[in-house]
Design a protein around this nucleic acid. Structure first.
Lengths: 338, 338
DNA sequence: TTGAAAGCGCTACCAG
DNA sequence: CTGGTAGCGCTTTCAA
């Protein structure tokens, strides 16, 4: 396997040390604990480093120190706005504390997720954030054995692997069902994916609807990975309506799907909400702008990322006190569409 | 600084080697070049590794091998759908070839970008993908000196740092102006950000409009980072209209902004396109679903990521022949909104 | 405040 | 096909 990269002359700490007339140890300290080095020598070191365009090799540093200042995260797909909000929050919080983000997409495939996480673990990552729960036993064992602080997100389950931040998908969807029924809609539909979170939402939704005396809702399940949530929302609405012409309201597993459903209604000449009510999930910015504005469930997608970062860094930096399980809750945002 | 992480017993290659009665070298080979190891010994090694939940330390591997199988990318923000498409494509292509993605957000701030890239360089990354051009001289020097294959994306400039894939923002925006004028609109507006790409689009757009004999267009500039493109699009439309009541068409710097503008029109009772034409940029899935469907400029956001990955991996793996500069072009997609 | 030296766990070269 | 071994460049005691 030829190494084609142009072999560039990269300076090492030793070169900087020599140039600044100090030892390697001092250079190392100047970078990692600046205040433990005489200001004058420190500045001299920095000056030489700058002059040589010296870049510290964090790979060697990680090996020696046993930590990398990298936190890894796995999301199903990045093009789904709800996950990119979480990653945005996570990345922002990490960056502000000097950590970096290693990111992977699982495309909703367990095998991919497994391989990804294993590779991450080998990077001496300081933390791991996953979307949903890790169910595979072997993988759980590996993660636990590694001792890497891990946060499962977007779900609340009884047995966290380590830490957990999210909300109850079932409860949130049940609240949606009750909201719709409370508004007088009885013929209900659901549009969502096939993943665990959508599954929980579907169960919460249909059970609550039935418990409230409504006829059993219909479901349209999007095959993952979907080409696009908006497109899938439109398809879902049309399919559901074909099967059940008296459909009166649909609850969608996220706001992009809901937007697609609203557009489909407009195209079909079905007034929203007078002929068809549409409710979303996740409260993305687009919801408030849509005409009519989207009734939805607020779930703090970004906050999930921020909290996950905080939990991990607190653990890494030896602070304690944070709960291992954080329920961020949810709330119904009633707007015009349902 | 206490290391709070629970010190887990992590096995090393040595442990696996001992358990499988072979040398460390053989274990290493079993993982990196499986076909150079006797199938029987190989399986024995894997069995022991599995039994111990052994995870290979890629950090040590990177140090020894001088390469990391990591490619780093920097985007302004991830919550902007056009960049998450690029990252999706990049990540997909990298994963399929066994590489991982280290991701950073610059939030449109040069300082953040600089720090980020420097840290990346220290990871012995095998490639670097940046959004837009690197302008800072010191940073360019460091990148060049590192010898890391680098791709600048989303722009076409004369002096690539190394490789480049994108399209001409100026030419694309000029095409938009000509399209709108060709449809008979003369009072034009522009809604876009303050970054370099939006700036190029604004220049291309206004110059082409003027060259075609239209009155000088008005611009609404969104302060970066914007809270949300959709919201900004609505604000832009209202602001522009207040300043210029006879405004007849707006060209938006991306499709989410354009969607926001369309919603604002609906709210104002301005029929699209009969009273106000709206044109987008980037051809996101939402555009085709919107009512009316969005006229836009297609620019292969995802393809940019895929190509960037290919360029880097070809270089890393010693293949050649790919051009250092790839113009993916653009095309006008005429739909109902303009 | 500084320096010397012992690894961190793996890869890659070379020998057998 | 397999094993021995010399580093990769840094962090981190420990002593001075």
């Amino acid at each position: 396997m030829p190494q084609a990269r142009i072999k560039a002359k990269n300076y090492k700490m030793e070169d900087v040390a020599r140039a600044a007339n100090v030892s390697i140890s001092t250079v190392s300290r100047a970078f990692s604990q600046p205040d433990r080095v005489d200001p004058e020598t420190r500045e001299a070191i920095f000056a030489e480093a700058r002059r040589l365009n010296y870049v510290r090799d964090l790979t060697a540093g990680s090996l020696a120190a046993g930590r990398s200042r990298i936190v890894a995260a796995v999301v199903p797909v990045l093009t789904n706005a709800i996950f990119s909000e979480t990653i945005d929050g996570l990345g922002h919080e990490l960056a502000s504390r000097g950590y970096q983000l290693l990111l992977g997409q699982s495309w909703y495939r367990d095998g991919d997720e497994h391989a990804l996480i294993e590779a991450f673990l080998g990077r001496k990552i300081d933390g791991l954030v996953v979307t949903g729960q890790i169910r595979d036993r072997a993988l759980r064992a590996k993660i636990k054995q590694s001792g890497v602080p891990t946060v499962e997100t977007w779900e609340m389950a009884d047995k966290p692997l380590d830490m957990m931040v999210g909300f109850s998908n079932e409860a949130a969807a049940a609240a949606a069902a009750r909201y719709l029924i409370g508004r007088g809609y009885r013929e209900l539909g659901f549009i969502g994916g096939m993943d665990q979170r959508s599954q929980s939402r579907w169960e919460g939704f249909s059970q609550a609807a039935i418990a409230a005396g409504a006829p059993p809702p219909s479901a349209y399940r999007i095959h993952s990975p979907a080409p696009s949530s908006v497109v899938a929302g439109g398809e879902g609405l049309r399919t559901l309506l074909a099967e059940r012409p008296n459909l009166r309201a649909v609850f969608c597993s996220n706001d992009m799907i809901a937007s697609g459903a609203v557009f489909a209604c407009q195209r079909l000449g079905l007034a929203v909400p007078n002929k068809m009510a549409v409710m979303g999930f996740s409260n993305l910015p687009i919801g408030a702008e849509l005409v009519p504005p989207l009734t939805t469930i607020q779930v703090s997608a970004r906050e999930i990322g921020v909290c996950a970062a905080k939990m991990i860094l607190d653990r890494v930096e030896g602070r304690t006190g944070r709960p291992a399980k954080l329920d961020l809750g949810f709330s119904v945002i009633a707007r015009g569409s349902a």
